[in-house]
Computed example of a mutant assay.
Amino acid sequence: MQAVDILDKLIGFPSVVGMPNADIVAWVRDYLQSHGIAAAVLPGPEGDRANLFATIGPKEVPGYILSGHMDVVPAAESGWTSDPFRLRADGGRLYGRGTSDMKGFLAAVLAAVPGLAEMRLRCPIHLAFSYDEEAGCRGVPHMITRLSELCENPLGAIIGEPSGLRAIRAHKGKAAARLTVRGQSGHSSRPDQGLNAIHAISDVLTRAVVEADQLTRGPFEDVFEPPYSSLQIGTVKGGQAVNVIPDTCEVEFEARAISGVDATNLLDPLRRTAEKLTERGFAVKWDELSAYPALSLPADAPLAALLEELTGIAPLPAVSYGTEAGLFQRAGIDAIICGPGDIGRAHKPDEYILVAELLACQAMIEALGARCSA
Rank of each mutant, 00 (worst) to 15 (best):
D5H: 05
I6H: 00
L7T: 02
L10Q: 08
F13C: 05
Y31P: 01
L52F: 04
A54V: 06
I56T: 14
G68A: 12
V72I: 05
V73N: 07
P74F: 06
A75Y: 11
A76F: 07
A76Y: 15
A89W: 04
R93D: 12
Y95H: 03
A112V: 13
L116Y: 10
A117D: 01
R120K: 14
L121Q: 02
R122D: 10
D132Y: 08
E134W: 08
G136I: 04
V140Y: 04
M143K: 01
I144M: 06
T145Q: 12
R146W: 10
E149M: 03
E149T: 08
C151H: 06
S163Q: 10
G164V: 06
I168M: 15
A170H: 10
K174H: 15
R178V: 13
T180N: 02
R182Y: 11
P191T: 05
I198V: 11
H199I: 04
A200N: 11
I201K: 07
D203G: 15
L205Y: 07
R207T: 13
A208L: 12
V210Q: 15
V210L: 13
Q214L: 13
L215R: 15
G218W: 07
P219Q: 06
D222A: 09
V223R: 09
E225N: 14
P226Q: 05
P227H: 07
I233P: 02
V236C: 09
G238R: 09
V242S: 08
N243Q: 10
I245K: 05
I245Q: 01
I245C: 03
D247W: 13
A263S: 07
N265Y: 09
L266K: 13
L266I: 14
P269G: 14
L270G: 11
R272M: 08
F282Y: 15
F282E: 10
W286C: 01
D287M: 12
E288I: 13
P298N: 03
A299M: 02
A299G: 01
P302R: 14
A305E: 14
G312A: 09
A318R: 05
Y321C: 10
F328N: 06
Q329H: 06
G332F: 09
C338V: 00
P340I: 04
D342K: 14
D350Y: 03
D350T: 15
V355E: 11
A356P: 00
Q362A: 14
M364P: 02
A367E: 00
